[in-house]
Amino acid sequence: MSNRYPSASLEWLLERARLEILPTASVAEQVHAHVEPGRTVTVTASPAKGLEATLAVTEQLADRYHVVPHLAARMIQRDHLPGLVEHLQGLGVTEVFVPGGDAVPTETTFTNALDLLVELEQMGRPFERVGITGYPESHPGIDDDVIVQSMWDKRRYATDIVSNMTFDDEQVGQWLERVRRRGIEHPVWVGVPGPVDPAKLLRMASMIGVGDSVRFLRKQRGVFARIALPGFSTTRFVRRIAALAGTQRLNIGGLHLYSFNQIEKTEAWRREQLGAVARLRDRSVGP
């Protein structure tokens, strides 16, 4: 794949990039300090902290940002869903992301993402947009065939796909081609690891909670090594995704930046890249 990229696509991706955060006690303060109002911020769900932590951060940010809480299906009691939806609507939330989640389902919770999506459908689609998960690379705990079939089954209940974090732009392109050949037309938000410090990333994993930390490390067992590899660059990766974004049939909706709560560094990188694009555009226009 060529390293050349259309600056207009890159600027478009950077301007509308979504920022994923973890629901820690201080994260809302960091967002307010470093992220301009109006941006989209997604809030993950942690089995160790409970859905309450996700809701608390959503409440702290909802008046200034487009907040997308993660509604992890296996963390939600079935009889609590109507109250949860009403609460989120009261906060002005119009979009949610529905993964299965890492919690162990019980007889009173939803069993998987599709289970919850069907229930939301029966409630009359209370949210304008609903995101589901996509996996450009193999998931350590789910067979590829199951992943593909699951995304197909969920497509009718969703409006967007958010890809899991990946490091290979060529693999993203090949995956998007396969998705489109199957007739899945939803916009895809490409998951991108922010320019994070691997040592801080490891400390962040330990802050999530003992059980979650183990699950996090198991699911992302290659993340630390690959982020630390000299050959990987968030900047280079994003520029190559910008080249893919110029292909209309792939329907890339934007970037989904995994910040791991290194918000100041991630946002500084994004602004720096926008500045570089602006300078390039100014030089091309000339005096």
Results as ranks from 00 to 15, higher is better:
residue 132 I to Q: 00
residue 31 V to W: 01
residue 133 T to K: 09
residue 165 M to G: 00
residue 221 R to T: 10
residue 140 P to A: 06
residue 92 G to K: 12
residue 15 E to R: 13
residue 150 S to L: 03
residue 273 Q to M: 14
residue 197 D to A: 08
residue 243 A to S: 14
residue 138 S to F: 00
residue 170 E to S: 12
residue 2 S to V: 04
residue 17 A to L: 04
residue 62 A to G: 13
residue 42 T to A: 15
residue 106 T to M: 08
residue 33 A to Y: 06
residue 188 V to I: 11
residue 227 I to N: 06
residue 65 Y to M: 04
residue 3 N to M: 06
residue 49 K to N: 09
residue 28 A to V: 01
residue 273 Q to C: 06
residue 18 R to T: 11
residue 281 R to D: 12
residue 262 Q to R: 09
residue 259 S to Y: 03
residue 179 V to Q: 04
residue 139 H to D: 08
residue 214 V to H: 10
residue 190 V to C: 05
residue 43 V to E: 06
residue 96 V to W: 02
residue 40 T to R: 14
residue 68 V to G: 03
residue 190 V to A: 06
residue 179 V to L: 11
residue 213 S to W: 04
residue 96 V to K: 04
residue 30 Q to R: 14
residue 35 V to Q: 02
residue 192 V to D: 03
residue 221 R to S: 14
residue 176 L to M: 07
residue 238 V to K: 02
residue 38 G to P: 01
residue 22 L to W: 05
residue 3 N to P: 00
residue 86 E to P: 02
residue 13 L to V: 02
residue 282 D to E: 14
residue 156 R to T: 14
residue 125 R to K: 14
residue 188 V to W: 05
residue 202 L to K: 13
residue 26 S to V: 15
residue 242 A to K: 03
residue 205 A to C: 11
residue 185 E to N: 12
residue 126 P to R: 11
residue 159 T to I: 09
residue 35 V to H: 00
residue 101 G to D: 02
residue 281 R to C: 00
residue 173 G to I: 10
residue 49 K to I: 00
residue 170 E to W: 04
residue 103 A to Y: 01
residue 86 E to K: 14
residue 28 A to Y: 02
residue 175 W to L: 07
residue 8 A to Q: 13
residue 236 R to W: 03
residue 153 D to T: 05
residue 6 P to L: 11
residue 4 R to L: 11
residue 214 V to A: 15
residue 142 I to W: 05
residue 18 R to E: 14
residue 86 E to T: 12
residue 79 D to I: 13
residue 156 R to N: 12
residue 124 G to I: 15
residue 271 R to P: 08
residue 25 A to E: 15
residue 264 E to H: 10
residue 267 E to M: 14
residue 65 Y to G: 11
residue 246 G to Y: 04
residue 51 L to S: 05
residue 65 Y to C: 06
residue 23 P to W: 07
residue 176 L to P: 01
residue 212 D to K: 10
residue 111 T to C: 08
residue 227 I to K: 07
residue 196 V to Y: 01
residue 250 L to F: 10
residue 186 H to S: 08
residue 103 A to E: 06
residue 260 F to I: 09
residue 154 K to A: 13
residue 285 V to T: 08
residue 60 Q to Y: 01
residue 47 P to E: 08
residue 35 V to D: 02
residue 267 E to G: 12
residue 114 L to A: 12
residue 259 S to L: 07
residue 19 L to K: 05
residue 262 Q to F: 03
residue 203 R to C: 04
residue 161 I to Q: 04
residue 286 G to V: 07
residue 6 P to T: 09
residue 115 D to W: 03
residue 81 L to V: 09
residue 76 I to A: 07
residue 241 I to G: 03
residue 74 R to F: 03
residue 122 Q to R: 15
residue 92 G to D: 05
residue 165 M to P: 00
residue 200 K to N: 07
residue 25 A to I: 11
residue 78 R to P: 05
residue 233 S to E: 10
residue 56 A to V: 10
residue 5 Y to S: 07
residue 187 P to C: 13
residue 220 Q to W: 06
residue 254 G to A: 08
residue 131 G to T: 04
residue 75 M to F: 01
residue 102 D to W: 01
residue 140 P to I: 07
residue 41 V to G: 03
residue 10 L to F: 04
residue 210 V to Y: 11
residue 73 A to S: 14
residue 117 L to C: 05
residue 217 L to M: 13
residue 117 L to Y: 02
residue 116 L to K: 09
residue 129 R to P: 00
residue 148 V to A: 07
residue 186 H to K: 12
residue 2 S to W: 07
residue 239 R to D: 10
residue 35 V to R: 02
residue 210 V to K: 13
residue 257 L to P: 08
residue 187 P to K: 14
residue 163 S to H: 03
residue 252 I to N: 03
residue 74 R to M: 06
